[in-house]
């Protein structure tokens, strides 16, 4: 490939920004806040991503997905770098992406809940049910179907739902 320019950098970012999260395909790795940086150095493409959780099994998938997607577009010299600072937080998930999560059936992280940093989850704010918006919901399990989710139950529509916990 010929020399990579600023315009190819923009194009590469666009390609990267459209890669879906492997577990939650309605949001992209950019919207999730995992995609952090793109550098081009001597025609090498260096993509920086940050792990959501230390044990997130999707990290390897993110890396493979990034390399495969760029390879299909003709970019082969790709390095994926992991960065740990600043630490990923659910605050980086855009409002638009939160809406998509909700429509997908996952209650998005609610800012100002007592999820973060407290020893006891007393007096917790209720999480709205993504189906019927009821606040009459109960936490069933702080640990859910994936590392990023908790399991809730809606006492009005009687359906269980996943909540994307605050980190």
């Amino acid at each position: 490939m010929e020399g990579l320019t600023q315009s190819s950098k923009d194009e590469i970012w666009k390609i990267l920004a459209e890669i879906p999260d492997p577990e939650i395909p309605v949001i992209t790795i950019e919207e999730l806040g995992v995609l952090r940086d793109l550098q081009i150095n001597n025609n090498k493409i260096i993509v920086t991503i940050t792990p959501t959780y230390t044990g997130c099994p999707a990290m390897k998938l993110f890396e493979d997905e990034i390399k495969n997607t760029l390879l299909q577009k003709g970019y082969s010299d790709v390095f994926v770098k992991l960065s740990y600072t600043p630490a990923w937080t659910t605050d980086w998930i855009t409002d638009e992406a939160k809406e998509k999560l909700k429509n997908f059936g996952i209650a998005p992280p609610v800012k100002g809940t007592e999820d973060k940093g407290l020893l006891f989850s007393l007096n917790k704010k209720n999480i709205p049910c993504p189906r019927c918006n009821s606040l009459n919901t109960t936490l069933k399990n702080q640990f859910g179907s994936t590392a990023c989710k908790a399991l809730y139950f809606c006492d009005d529509c009687l359906e269980p739902f996943d909540y994307f916990k605050c980190f």
Binding site: L119, Q142, F167
Partner: peptide, 24 residues
Amino acid sequence: DNMLSAHATKSIKEVTYHLRHSAE
């Protein structure tokens, strides 16, 4: 040490949930 500090910043979020789970 930047790496230890980054690791701690990330891990404490997880450990808070572990501590809460076992304490409860």
